[in-house]
Write a protein that binds this DNA or RNA. Sequence first.
DNA 1: GCATGCGATTAACCTCGATCATGACGATTC
DNA 2: GAATCGTCATGATCGAGGTTAATCGCATGC
Lengths: 249, 249
Amino acid sequence: MLTDRFLRDRRGVSLEAGERARLEAAISTTSTVESRKIIARAGEWLDQSTLLVEGIMSRYLDDRDGLRQLVAIHLPGDFVDLHAYPLKHLDHDVGTMTPATIAIVPHVELDAITEEMPELTRKLWFATLLDAAIHRAWLFRLGRLDAIGRVAHFFCETNVRLQSAGLSDGRQFTLGLTQADVAEICGLTTVHVNRVVRHLREEGLCTFRNGKVEILDAAKLARRGQFDPAYLYIDDPASPPPPDQRPRR
Amino acid sequence: MLTDRFLRDRRGVSLEAGERARLEAAISTTSTVESRKIIARAGEWLDQSTLLVEGIMSRYLDDRDGLRQLVAIHLPGDFVDLHAYPLKHLDHDVGTMTPATIAIVPHVELDAITEEMPELTRKLWFATLLDAAIHRAWLFRLGRLDAIGRVAHFFCETNVRLQSAGLSDGRQFTLGLTQADVAEICGLTTVHVNRVVRHLREEGLCTFRNGKVEILDAAKLARRGQFDPAYLYIDDPASPPPPDQRPRR
DNA sequence: GCATGCGATTAACCTCGATCATGACGATTC
DNA sequence: GAATCGTCATGATCGAGGTTAATCGCATGC
C-alpha cells in the first residue's frame, strides 16, 4: 500500500489497520515527478498535501542571493507537507531531489478524518510534530556543531530514518544527493563539504560517493556528530525509551 | 482571560468566543515560576501542557559540553509545550528565562477537545505548526546569515511577535534576556554578540541595553537580517498575504 | 566599609571555513 | 570526436568569529 511506510515503527503511534485503510482511501491520485522539480512554492494556497512514496524531497528557504537553506529532507513514507493542512499557506518551497512517486491527499479528506477519527487525527498531528522535532535537531546541528560534526550528524540521522523505512541496512544506503545538496543542508559550501567528506573517509568514519553513504564506524560517527536518535521517536526493542515517571503502557 | 493572547490576530485561525471559553475551562491551575527554572526535561513523560501567560520561556538542547542551543523562545500567549500532547515525550528541555506566570492544561482536557471540537483541534494543531515555522526561520538564520544578520533577524522577529501580543509598540520592547541568551539563540559566543550589538548600535539600526531593545531603523534592520514576517502568519490589514492562485475569500 | 558576583566590554591571538581558482572525470549532446 | 555540463577534487588566501583573559560597572549582602 502507498501508506505502508507512514509512521512505521513510531513509538506508540503506528496506525491501526482501519486507520491506514482510511488514509489510503483519502488518496486522490498518485503521480511521478522528475528530479529537481518544485512541487509547491512559498505563499501559495494549498488544498492538498503530498505523501512521498518513493524518492527524496526537500523543503527549503531562499536567501536574498538565491542561496538555499534546506529545512527538511523527506524520505519515502513521509507526509511531506501535511502541515499545509492546518497552515494552508507554506512559508517555504517544496521540491524533489530525485525522481519521486507521490500520492496526493486532498484537504477535504483530512477534514472528514478530523471530524470522524480523533485518534487518527492525533497521529497525523504527531507526524507533523515529528518533523518539528527534526527541525530542532537541525537547529542544534547548525548552532552547535562544526562542519565535520554537522555532516556526521546528518548521515547518522538519515541512516536511522532510512532504516526505519526499510531502505538502509544500517551500514550503507543510497541517498540521491550531491555534495552541493549536503552543503545546503549543513549550511556549508560545497568546497568545504568536499573536504569534510575526505576527512570522514580518512578517519575511517564513513564514505560518501555517487550519492551512496557507507558507515564504517557507526559509534564513532555518532559521537563525532553528537547524534542521539531519541528525537526520531522510533520504536527500537533494543533501546527502550529513556527512564522517567511514565505510567506503564 | 488567561488565554487572551493565544493565537491573537493569526491569519484565519483566531479563536471564536466559545472556543476560547472552552480552552479557558481546560486550565487546571495557574502558577508563578521564578526565573531560570526548568519546567520539563527531555525524555520526561508529560500529561499536561503549559500556556505562558506572563514572562519569557525557552526550549533548548544541550551539547556534550553542556553548551545550550535554544530552539525556541516563548512569549506571553504561547502554548509553550502543546506539542507534548501528541508527542508525550519531549526531545528537549523547557525552562523560564524570566519570572513567569503559567497556566496548566491537562492532556485529558485536550482529549476531550479533540473528541468534540474538531475545528478547535485544528487551531491547536495550527499553533504547534506555527512553532515549527519559526523553527524553520531559525534554521535559515543559523544556516545562511552572518552574526550581524542573525541578531538583526532575531530582534525583528521578536519585535513582531511581541507586537502581536501587545507587548511592543514596534519601536522598543523589553526582553528579559542577556547577551549570553542571545548568543545561545543565534549560535554565537557572548563575546561576539557584544561586538555585534555594538555594530548594530554604531550603524544606527538598534540598541540592546539591560534587556531592552530599541529599534532605530526598522527597515534597515529587517534588510540586514533578511527578515520577512510572513512565516509568523500574523493578520495585518496593511500587508495582505502574498499573491497566489488562492480562490478569493 | 568591603566582598562577591553577574553582565558588559574590550584586546590579542588564532582557527575554521569561505572565497577564488583551476583541473579531472564522466555523461550527454551535436 | 569535440564541446558542454555537472560533479568531484584540491590548493592558496583571507576574514569572520572563536578563544582566552583582563577589566569595568553595578547591584546585593554582610
